[in-house]
Amino acid sequence: MRNAFPIFTVLCAILAIWYAGSVWMNSTWVFDQATRNGQTVTWGQVIPLTMAQDRPLLPPPHQVAENLWKGIAGQAVTSKRSLVYHGFVTFRGTMAGFALGIVFGVGMAMAIVRFRVMDQSVMPWAIISQTIPIVALAPMILTVSNQIGIETKEVPKAVISAYLSFFPVLVSMVKGLRAPDHMQLDLLKTYGASEGQTFWKLRLPASLPYFFASLKVAVAAALIGTIVGELPSGAIEGLGARMLIGSQFGEPLIMWAALFAAAILAGLLIVLVGLVERLANRRMGVGA
């Protein structure tokens, strides 16, 4: 618990800055109202009025927390207003995209390491693919998938999510599969090991630390991809859709609550990946 103090200090600082920002930004509305009514207000009167507006420019932390709590615990988890429900929809999409990204990333890395031609022809495209802004690409993927007759929104969402998450896996796995040095490869050669044996017994296990390092980046990317995929799809489900609704209908509280729900989800996902990594490490005999 020695770490608790600095963490708590930083948290307090963030909250203080946030409250100050709320007062400053929301006070504009209070002053405008007062001017319109021909009244003058003192700061003592203004501050309480900035703390409980229906549509604040910057909602103060307690309002966000209150909305978040209402969204999570305030109703049945099956309700369309429940953040648990929307969070689950996003989680499902993230997992689909994450899985797709892993399969695609690992598969491509295997091909690139095995075939020189792939290294020269595919790798540049993989890099270029990441320079295209996903917000520009997402509507196109949705249109195309609709055009080819895919009714469900889950598939294009997973594709958009995988589009972001495959890349860190690919880059790490190319490095990981190439990690064994000449000596280790020569050793297997002296045993007359086949290419398959070299892959399963040396390259793949040697790449696992790289793989897990990339998963933490990939899972976060998959979540972002899913949320972006939910924005333009006209979707009514998912945290991305919730954020869009909040922004379009001028309900900042809904938007902020969804934003924090997404952050919590991201945190949980990273913890989950970390746990899987720890389990794998223990099996692989990494330090006590």
């Binding site: 280790q184 050793l187 040697a206 696992l208 005999g285």
Partner: peptide, 14 residues
């Protein structure tokens, strides 16, 4: 033949 290299080259995961 069996070959022994300069470094032991044991697999850390085994």
């Amino acid at each position: 033949y069996g070959y022994v290299f300069q470094a032991a080259g044991l697999y850390p995961w085994r």
